[in-house]
Design a protein around this nucleic acid. Structure first.
Lengths: 158, 158
DNA sequence: ACACCTTGGTTCGAATTTGAACAACAGGAG
DNA sequence: CTCCTGTTGTTCAAATTCGAACCAAGGTGT
């Protein structure tokens, strides 16, 4: 049948792009993970939770919404929020309009932690990625990967 | 002191590039993981192990070398190779020149599995990433992230 | 009010990942 | 040869991750 044609393999350039993406992603994650853990005792995931909460209107977000922003599973988020709660960086508050709803909310201590951890993290992201690339390269990255993400979000929700 | 200046935060474009990178990476990983698991019963990591072995001279690589290519921990690789061994896809062979050395080696069954799994995987990578981007965008991605990876490899070994 | 299907979060068990500690060996300086 | 240092791969415990099952509650149509 026609649909079982030989697949279109990746040519040299395409493969280079794909390998570069995967490799850079893994290397970066490892490095950032290490830095954050040593510097602030946070995992990258935990740090990102603080960031997203801090950026949200009242420093709080519904669990599901937060999970989507983080691109993680609901159960994974439940676990990490519990960890952060034990550290006193995040609190849970129930939603007035929906009894089932739970807000994760940044505590003052959580805000302080973020203030303390952010500079080192940002500096490293800059050193390892941002400052390595030109303005044009960054623009292409934002544009291209933004589109990729958008499409993924779409048929993921579908 | 001068070194404790206000850190250089990321401006709008830089942030867009960084968020796009992280988000796309997470979304892609999730999606590929799901596809491979459903389609072939392999994790992305396991699939990558097969790929790297298949690309290697004799279908075999030293554990340490393989771990570096995969960008994973040595212990993590030990675990996964054991799993693949149980599935009959990979074998271990000791190194003639170094008693400590261990070669991970692709079995015939492993080669078959890769042949079976590759088309679906490649098709998805193409659909979600490669075909979404233009030739120019891909070139920038390969070039830029290649450089990023290269630098990371350097001071990682240092 | 009632049955019904979707949502929001948590719980549970299984699989995976990591760094540290370890044991055995390689490679070279003296 | 002998000591010393760096490698190699594994083992171990602890932390994390995921999906499936689950419960409770929302919202809808009748």
């Amino acid at each position: 049948m026609a649909s079982m044609n030989e697949p279109r393999w990746l040519d040299h350039d395409e493969m280079a792009a794909w390998r570069g993406f995967v490799t850079a992603s893994n290397l970066l994650n490892r490095r950032l993970e290490r830095q954050l853990k040593e510097d602030s005792g946070l995992s990258h995931t935990q740090y990102e939770i603080l960031v997203h909460l801090s950026a949200a209107p009242a420093g709080s977000l519904r669990m599901t919404e937060l999970a989507e922003k983080l691109v993680t599973s609901k159960s994974g988020l439940t676990y990490q929020v519990t960890q952060l709660e034990r550290m006193g960086l995040v609190g849970r508050r129930s939603c007035p309009s929906d009894v089932r709803g739970v807000f994760a909310e940044l505590t003052d201590q959580g805000r302080d932690m973020l203030r303390q951890a952010a500079p080192g993290h940002v500096a490293l992201v800059r050193e390892l990625l941002i400052d390595v690339l030109s303005r044009e390269q960054l623009a292409v990255l934002a544009e291209g990967l933004g589109e990729v993400s958008a499409r993924l979000r779409l048929d993921d929700g579908a």
